[in-house]
Amino acid sequence: MGFACASLLSEYPYSGNTLPRFRQRIIGAVAGSFAFYLLYLIIPESMHSLLGPLGGLCLGFCTDYRYKTAMNCFGALMLGAGIYGIQGAVLLRIFDTLLGGTFGLIFATLFHRLVAVRFLSRSKAAELH
C-alpha cells in the first residue's frame, strides 16, 4: 500500500491532477497480476522462480507508467506467492494497490485544496504587490 501511494504521489508537485496516474496504477496492477497468474499456471513449477527476474527485465524496457506497474507486479507476486499462495498474493496485490492508491489520491486532493492553493495564491498575490 505504501509503495502504491508513494508512486502515485511521486509526480504530485509537477502535476496537480493525480487521477490519470491513479487510473494507470490500478490498470497496471490488475493487468500485471492477471498476467503473472496466467503465466504461473501455464509454466512448469521448476520455472516459477524465473518470473520475478523476467518482470524486472521487462520493466527495464517499459516507458509508460501503467506497463511499469504491470511488470513490477511480477517480482512482488513471486515473493508473495510463496507466503500467501498464488491466489492470495494476486488478490492482496490488487486490493493493496487499490487501497494505497485511493489514499494517495485523497491525500493529494485534500493537500492541494487545503494547503497548496492557499500558499500559492498568497505567494502570487505578494509578487503582484
Rank of each mutant, 00 (worst) to 15 (best):
M47E: 14
L57E: 04
G28Y: 00
G60A: 13
Y14K: 14
N72R: 01
D64F: 00
Y12D: 03
R93L: 08
G60S: 06
F74K: 01
A89S: 14
S33Y: 02
I83F: 08
S7I: 01
K68W: 04
S15F: 05
Y37F: 15
C5K: 12
G88L: 02
L54D: 10
S33M: 00
L105G: 08
F95P: 05
G52P: 11
A116C: 11
S7F: 05
M47R: 08
A35H: 00
F36H: 09
A6D: 08
Q24P: 02
I43H: 04
M1H: 03
R21T: 14
T63I: 02
A116H: 06
Y67K: 01
I94D: 09
G75F: 08
L128I: 14
R21V: 11
L114I: 06
G75V: 06
E45C: 07
L59M: 02
L19H: 12
L51A: 02
S7W: 07
C62I: 02
F95M: 11
S121G: 02
T69Q: 01
L39M: 15
I106V: 04
L92S: 07
C5I: 11
F119L: 15
R93V: 12
L77W: 01
S121T: 15
F61L: 15
T63K: 06
M78F: 01
A70C: 08
R118M: 07
S123F: 11
G60F: 07
I43R: 00
N17T: 03
G28N: 03
A4C: 09
M71L: 12
F103K: 08
T63G: 14
L79H: 04
M47S: 15
L19E: 13
A81Q: 11
G60Y: 05
L120P: 04
I26C: 10
P53Q: 06
C58F: 03
S121C: 07
G85C: 09
I86Y: 07
T97C: 04
F103H: 09
F119D: 07
R113S: 12
H129F: 10
C5A: 15
P20Y: 00
G82A: 06
R93M: 12
Y67E: 05
L79Y: 01
A125L: 04
G16C: 03
A6G: 14
V30N: 10
L110E: 10
R113G: 10
L50C: 05
V115W: 13
F107T: 11
A126D: 12
P20G: 12
P20A: 03
A29M: 05
T69P: 05
G82C: 06
G100I: 11
R113N: 04
F3V: 06
L59P: 10
I86F: 02
L105N: 11
I94F: 06
M47T: 14
S33W: 04
K124W: 07
T109I: 06
G2T: 15
R122Y: 09
F36E: 12
L9N: 03
L105A: 15
I42V: 15
I106K: 04
S49G: 05
L79Q: 04
R66I: 10
I106C: 09
S7H: 10
G104I: 05
M71I: 08
L99H: 08
N72A: 15
P44C: 01
Y67C: 02
